[in-house]
């Protein structure tokens, strides 16, 4: 069913999907570091230069929130939409993922398991409200003091929440032996077919139309671009 199955590799994330991820990730790390320096009193006293930190933080925040959208618009918009759609709609296997009593030894994931879907939805909502609350703090003089205060508290709460979620994300991407292979998919685009069969069996069994199409496009591009 899969073309070129003997290569042993399967396209997991196309260029647009990788660009969206890494723009978001790079902006996030810079915004997190500069934001913590702005937030934590001891760091602030050590570093000083509040204005420089603030400029970096606002730039990083805008990158984190908006650059992925721009990349998606300029690149393969449909593949991004398909992933967001997949994260919104959960089937019976997804619902079993978080079930406490599970006698079958785990659910069979599709392209994304339910944890990844929840992560994407959380990240989207958190990013949206980081952007809104950050914009209110940035342009404080246009708004009521109560709103500015609420925005500040929401921005802080989101920071502590996303820090926990991000550490979990890093654990699955870098440490957890069963899942860390997926990092290769986010770096090169491709993952081992055998890994995908074990961790995302229903994705490999029934590749959705868009990811099959992406694979062809990506392969064609590689042939053109390569020697």
């Amino acid at each position: 069913m899969e073309p070129d199955g003997d290569l042993g590799l399967v396209l997991r994330f196309n260029r647009t999907q990788r660009a969206v991820h890494w723009l978001h990730a790079g902006g996030f790390v810079l915004a997190l570091l500069s934001g913590l320096a702005l937030l934590v009193g001891a760091a602030e006293e050590l570093i000083g230069h509040r204005f420089v930190l603030r400029v970096i933080h606002i730039g990083a925040g805008l990158t984190f929130a908006l650059a992925p959208l721009l990349a998606a618009r300029l690149g393969d918009w449909h593949s991004i939409r398909a992933d967001f759609r997949a994260a919104q709609w959960w089937d019976a296997e997804d619902r079993r993922f978080f079930a406490i009593t599970d006698d079958s030894g785990g659910s069979r994931a599709g392209r994304f398991n339910a944890g990844q879907k929840a992560n994407l939805m959380f990240t989207a909502a958190a990013t949206l409200f980081f952007l809104i609350s950050g914009a209110i703090m940035w342009q404080y003089f246009r708004f009521d003091r109560a709103l500015v205060q609420n925005a500040g508290m929401l921005h802080d709460t989101l920071t502590f929440t996303i820090l926990v979620v991000w550490l979990g994300h890093l654990w699955y991407a870098l440490v957890n032996p069963r899942t860390r292979h997926s990092m290769r998919g986010m770096l090169s685009g491709y993952v081992d077919r055998s890994w995908a069969a074990s961790v995302h069996p229903r994705w490999l069994g029934q590749p959705n139309a868009s990811s099959a199409a992406e694979m062809k496009i990506d392969r064609a591009a590689k042939q053109e671009g390569g020697l």
Binding site: Q88, D91, D94, K117, F122, A125, L154
Partner: peptide, 16 residues
């Protein structure tokens, strides 16, 4: 299919 992910997004947005 159920829109559980969408509900998660909308719920978090309502909270925000």
């Amino acid at each position: 299919l159920r829109p559980i992910g969408r509900r998660l997004f909308l719920g978090l947005s309502a909270l925000g």
